[in-house]
Simulated assay, not measured.
Amino acid sequence: MILDRFRLTDQVAVVTGAGRGLGAATAVALAEAGADVVISSRTESQLHEVAERVAAAGRRAHVVAADLSDPAATAALAEAATSTFGRLDIVVNNVGGTYPRPLLETTTEFLEEAFRFNVSTAHALTAAATPALLEHGGAVVNISSIMGRVQGRGFIAYGTAKAALSQYTRMAAVDLAPRVRVNAISVGSVTTSALELVVGNEEIRVKMEQATPLRRIGEPEDIAAAVVYLVSPAGGYVTGKVLEVDGGLQAPNLDLGLPDL
């Protein structure tokens, strides 16, 4: 049956930024598809809540509370997976993000920090995980953003970093083929904590929905489902691609209202 191609029975995954939002939904989805998961973020209490959901799906979770803005901390998750579960098949580089900031308030240090948090961390874990991924043939998914391919004021650091992550995905896919597949997801507006202040305002939320071709804000499960596709045999002939899961957006659906200089 075609649904069998989406199974991940007895595989092992690492998901960063897994305490809430996209990471939490992804960890649970992978567990429901049959994988054990190493989940990591800064807040341990959130991770234990996600671990309970993984257990309810009949799989095991290993919790690693860490500051994932440090590339060394993300790299260590590969060893955590192999030492705990004996193998590693899937890496989801979800940790990332950067606050909006006008260009003239974006220091070089702020730009470099955005690059480190969104790109360097992903590279550190991917490189550390590669020996284990090569053993059975594995898959990596990087969580990028629509802001890596469209233009919007206030997002110069975030958009530049996510664009770099998308290109990193294409380059890594060539380097690691044919044993390891590497893809990314270009995420649109999704109801996570990062958008709480925005979508909590009905007027702004309605404007965002109307500016989105599918007329809604995405749910974390929309992204989690795409991850399952990309890392499972169902996506076995896909590598080096950036899958756009954004409701059809071709431009930002949130205007920060920054004036002309």
Rank of each mutant, 00 (worst) to 15 (best):
P100R: 00
H48M: 13
T107L: 01
T107C: 07
I143P: 13
A66F: 07
V91T: 00
D246Q: 10
L243S: 11
G34H: 00
P259V: 03
A35E: 01
S186I: 05
A128T: 02
V242T: 14
G148P: 06
V64W: 10
L3S: 08
I204V: 11
G257D: 11
A114T: 09
G19I: 09
L254P: 06
M171D: 09
A76M: 08
L256M: 11
S144R: 06
V92C: 07
L125W: 06
G148Y: 07
A194V: 03
R216I: 13
I146C: 10
L243F: 11
E32R: 11
E203L: 15
G86M: 01
Q151C: 15
V182P: 12
A124P: 08
N93V: 03
P102G: 00
P213G: 11
V92W: 02
P131M: 01
H48L: 15
A157E: 04
L254M: 01
E112L: 14
T160R: 05
P71R: 05
V242K: 08
R179H: 07
V238L: 07
L254F: 03
T9I: 02
K207E: 15
D10K: 02
V198S: 04
I143M: 14
V150C: 10
G200I: 07
H123K: 09
S189V: 01
Q210G: 11
